[in-house]
């Protein structure tokens, strides 16, 4: 079981490399109901549920591919597209909502020029919203690469993004 949500160690395996997949499948072989855990591990390893990987998994386990997709798309946690270098998850739970988190999200949308669920073209930022992060006391809250930021405002959002762009050398490295 991996610590999902903590994306501190974010170097993903490229989906062409199937050896981690074999490991994962072996580890869960014979365990009932393990498919969701297998998805979690695949996502942890590859960053998302790649189509090729899903096909391989269906073959290995003897499932229809449609069954795997039916399952994966039921759960909001699983991504079918690769994510950017930095993952920003903004809480849209009730406590955050009444403290006007929408304005924070608006700022992020404007700055990044994407809507929640999307990744910037240079694969630098992915923006998501979540139901509740369970840290409602410090609402509005968001998590960036596993680190919680509380009492957010649009201007704090902007500063945070500017800092990430600057420190990460976004323009220079682009995809990395």
């Amino acid at each position: 079981m991996e610590k999902e949500g903590c994306s501190c160690n974010r170097s993903f395996v490229p989906p062409e490399d199937l050896s981690p997949l074999e490991d994962i499948v072996e580890r869960y072989r014979g365990e009932r109901g393990a498919l969701i855990s297998v998805f979690h591990e695949i996502q942890q390893t590859y960053g998302y549920l790649d189509e090729g990987i899903m096909g391989e998994l269906a073959k290995k386990l003897g499932y229809q591919l449609s069954h795997l997709y039916g399952l994966a798309t039921f759960y909001t946690q699983f991504r079918l597209k690769p994510i950017g270098k930095h993952l920003i998850r903004i809480c849209h739970g009730t406590a955050c909502h009444v403290r006007n988190v929408r304005e924070v999200t608006e700022e992020a949308k404007r700055f990044l020029n994407i809507v929640p669920g999307e990744t910037t073209e240079d694969m630098y930022f992915t923006l998501e919203t979540v139901n509740c992060l369970g840290t409602c006391a410090i609402a509005p809250v968001l998590v960036v690469d596993g680190v919680y930021h509380g009492h957010m405002t649009p201007s704090k959002m902007k500063k945070l993004l500017e800092k990430m762009v600057k420190e990460g050398g976004r323009e220079a490295s682009g995809q990395d």
Binding site: S37, H40, Y75, Q77, F78
Partner: peptide, 9 residues
Amino acid sequence: KVSVGGGAF
């Protein structure tokens, strides 16, 4: 055993 959900209310 521990089972981790997939984010569905």
